[in-house]
Simulated scan of single mutants.
Amino acid sequence: MALADLERDGHGYLADLTQWNEDIAQELAAEEGIELTAESFKLINFLRNEYINNNANQPNERNMVKGLKSDWEGKLDTKALYKLFPKGPAKQAGKVAGLPETRRKGGY
């Protein structure tokens, strides 16, 4: 199924996170003007796992860094996350991950 066939909210987030796959992620990333890397998918998969398996948890940047540090090549800090998702790792990576829009302060 292509991204154009999926239901989305007014901000472009998927209405049903179970319809997400890596091809959909690539299409969402293209809309956002970013290119996904192996590190991008580490963050995306971390966010999906937290949301699906941890009571709909949507971690902030500090907790993303903490949760990903052991599986990251090189230095990991919030700057590294913003290089991957310049409009904000919580909102932009969450969107590409097929998750609902986070209600945390900030964003775009």
Rank of each mutant, 00 (worst) to 15 (best):
Y108W: 13
I44S: 04
E22R: 15
D5F: 10
E31I: 03
L81E: 12
E27R: 03
N53D: 02
K91T: 10
A25Q: 04
I44C: 09
L47Y: 08
A93K: 14
W72D: 01
K66W: 13
Q58L: 01
A15P: 09
D71M: 13
G33F: 01
Q92M: 03
K42L: 13
N45G: 02
I24T: 02
K75A: 11
L43Y: 00
D9W: 04
E73H: 14
D9R: 03
W20Y: 12
R48A: 03
Y82E: 04
F46T: 00
G12P: 06
Y82A: 02
M64K: 13
Q58M: 03
N63A: 03
N55P: 01
A80G: 04
L3P: 11
L14Q: 02
G67I: 06
S70T: 11
E27Q: 15
A30E: 13
A30Y: 09
R104Y: 07
E101Q: 11
I34S: 12
A80M: 15
L6A: 03
A38H: 11
E7Y: 08
W72E: 06
N55A: 10
F41P: 03
I52G: 08
Y13H: 06
G94H: 09
A4C: 06
L81V: 03
A93N: 09
L17G: 01
D71G: 11
L36V: 05
N45W: 09
E39G: 02
L43F: 02
P89W: 09
W20S: 02
N49I: 00
Y108G: 08
A25T: 01
K42G: 05
M64T: 00
P86D: 06
A4D: 13
M1H: 12
A38C: 00
K95Q: 15
E22M: 10
D77M: 11
G10F: 12
A56I: 00
D23Q: 15
T37M: 12
G98D: 08
Y13Q: 00
I34F: 10
G33P: 00
I34K: 07
R48Y: 12
F46V: 00
